[in-house]
């Protein structure tokens, strides 16, 4: 399950829950009477398991924000991610553009249970502020991505339901519905198209609190790293209610670069990269 795009780039966690879930679902899948909920969970778990072991990642992200009239704004952000066994992942984002926020950094420790721990570093004041982050439906830097879209994806945070098989481009996809358990989520449900052969997400529809279609994310281009890990390099998020869109381009993606906990410390927040 790949509704959260960032988790591919920043990447994701493996977890004990996942391990136990796999054993459970392996048994469940052998039964002919598997429910759509069980099959949905199984697909999400397989997809997550496939992505385990990436260790850490570094990349640079360029966001192009487009208004309906075609006006463009650019954001450039450096990303670092650390896979945490047994809990949610850690991530560090440092802004490079727009220039007036250069050096501003976000540090996030996501958790399987409960809200994430997040800090923002404001370089002009040299001040680190803890973010009270229950509701995360708000826009990230004026883009069509919300803070929720950026947080680490955890299976325990959703209920799943398999809908159908469907052709997606040249490939065949599972169509999967997922429902956020978090009452502060900006979404009531997401529908994902997951490539069956590669177990990677090709498209996601996001439905708002009024159950209307809000956004559609399409991954335009994938690349495989370390012979195993699919990472999007171009994706598009379109807001179907406002006509605005955000295009994301990742460059310089590297996995297993040797980052450690020290790279995700508060002291390190102040050392802008």
């Amino acid at each position: 399950m790949q509704n959260v795009l960032f988790h591919r780039a920043l990447s994701l966690s493996s977890s004990l829950i996942l391990a136990t879930g796999l054993i459970f679902s392996a048994n469940a899948s052998s039964e002919a009477t598997q429910t759509p909920e069980q099959k949905g969970l199984e697909i999400a778990q397989k997809q997550k398991a496939q992505d385990e072991g990436w260790g850490d990642s570094q990349s640079e992200m360029k966001m192009i924000l487009r208004s309906p009239s075609g006006k463009e704004n650019t954001r450039i952000i450096k990303l670092k991610g650390l896979e945490v066994i047994g809990d949610g992942d850690k991530s560090l984002m440092v802004f490079d553009q727009p220039r007036d926020v250069a050096g501003t950094a976000f540090l996030s420790f996501s958790h399987i249970e409960g809200p994430d721990d997040q800090w923002i570093y404001l370089p002009a004041l040299k001040r680190i502020k803890r973010i009270a982050s229950k509701k995360k439906s708000g826009s990230f830097m004026g883009s069509e991505f919300s803070y929720e879209d950026l947080s680490s994806f955890e299976i325990a945070k959703y209920d799943f339901k398999y809908l159908r098989d469907e052709a997606c481009g040249d490939a065949q996809c599972y169509v999967l519905e997922s429902y956020p358990k978090d009452k502060y989520s900006g979404y009531t449900r997401l529908i994902s198209w997951i490539n069956q052969a590669e177990l990677r997400t090709e498209k996601v529809e996001f439905y708002d609190r009024k159950k209307s279609l809000l956004k559609v994310m399409t991954i335009k281009q994938y690349e495989k790293f370390e012979g195993k890990y699919w990472r999007p390099v171009v994706s598009l998020m379109e807001n179907k209610q406002t006509g605005k869109s955000t295009e994301m381009h990742w460059t310089g993606i590297r996995l297993k670069t040797g980052l450690t906990e020290d790279d995700f410390s508060k002291n390190n927040l102040k050392r802008a990269k």
């Binding site: 009270a132 229950k134 509701k135 995360k136 439906s137 708000g138 826009s139 900006g186 708002d208 609190r209």
Partner: peptide, 14 residues
């Protein structure tokens, strides 16, 4: 204290 009303009415405004 600081009380934050996030994303008021899904307007994006905090």
């Amino acid at each position: 204290f600081e009380y934050t009303l996030s994303d008021v009415n899904f307007s994006g405004i905090d």
